[in-house]
Amino acid sequence: MTGDIRALLSRHLPGYRVHSVTRLGHGLDNMVYEVNDELLVRLGQAADPLSHRQEVGRLAVVRELSPLPVPDVVFADDEAGAIAYRKLGGEPLLRNPLIDPALLAEPLGRFLTAIHGAEPDRMRPLAPLDLYPAPTQLQDAELDYRDVERHVPEDQRPLVERFLRAKPPDEPRSLRFCHNDLGAEHVLVDGEATITGIIDWTDAAITDPAHDFALIYRDLGPEVFELTAAHYGPGLDEDDRGRVRFYARCALIEDLAYGLSTGPGYYADAALAHLPWTFS
């Protein structure tokens, strides 16, 4: 596979000298390689030219809007299912447990204000509409929970089971352009608690803005969520907050199931660590 990466670079960056190619990891749909400690090349499991063109286009718009760094596309190859980006500094917040997440609330609030402020009509050609009805999410969460229930500490199971029996929230009144996967693994920070990048825009969509806040709630806790919301221009009402908590809980169960099956184990570790504040 490293030969494929070298061939791509030769085709799109003639004269670029490749000193090292390192496989960083993979997700459900992609494999990521680092080149010369300065480029990241993502290879899709299946080529999707329309999806690639949309991602390149929306990242160009996001770079205009975002007060925080986002990936800069160097080249895209629709036929090979590849996109190359310049590597951003910092490390995923998920791997920086000593960082005080409260220090990130203000920049995250400004970031979400800017991104959610994008005109939906401008973004619709560049991002899909993501409609995932709350009752369906709850049903899926219950199925996932039954698969992983034995891994949840016995004293915490009632928290999850009470949620699964509750009525799902009403649907949102409006939809906006969202990152749609703003977990701690996609927020890069340096040792000074400065956000150095927001990465992985493959799931970006026109959807409920509460989805972006939900992963802040899940990964950084309710207090950091409220601090972030305080810096969010449009504001959040109680209905919004109810959907944030609902999405956060569904997402935690999904991550727990993923980490205990095909995904990296740290997803399950983080889910179990964050379960008390997410469900209490």
Rank of each mutant, 00 (worst) to 15 (best):
P158F: 06
G183T: 14
V189T: 12
P92H: 02
V62K: 01
R6N: 10
D77P: 10
L13C: 07
A166K: 01
E226P: 00
L143F: 07
H231V: 03
E149Q: 13
N180R: 13
A270F: 10
G233A: 13
G259Y: 04
S51K: 09
R63F: 02
L138F: 02
V56W: 00
G242C: 10
Q45W: 06
Y16W: 11
P128F: 04
P101K: 08
R245D: 01
P49W: 08
L28C: 10
L98H: 05
L159I: 12
I195K: 13
D255W: 14
I115Q: 02
P128W: 02
L93A: 07
A141T: 08
L112F: 00
D200I: 13
T202A: 01
A47E: 13
V244S: 12
R165P: 02
L131A: 11
A193K: 14
G242Y: 05
F246E: 04
L24P: 05
Y33C: 07
D255K: 14
G15D: 13
Y132E: 15
D203F: 05
D72L: 07
K87S: 06
V148N: 01
L98I: 01
P264Y: 01
P69R: 06
E254Q: 15
P125I: 06
L94C: 04
V189Y: 04
L182H: 05
P14G: 12
I206S: 01
K87D: 08
E91M: 10
D200H: 02
L164D: 03
F177G: 02
E223I: 12
A229G: 03
A204C: 09
Y145E: 05
D130A: 15
R124E: 11
A268C: 04
T136G: 11
P168H: 06
P107D: 09
D219N: 12
A102K: 07
A105T: 10
E55L: 06
A257T: 09
A127D: 03
E79T: 15
R241L: 15
L188M: 10
E91K: 13
L143W: 06
V62F: 02
V244K: 12
R122H: 08
A102D: 11
H19R: 13
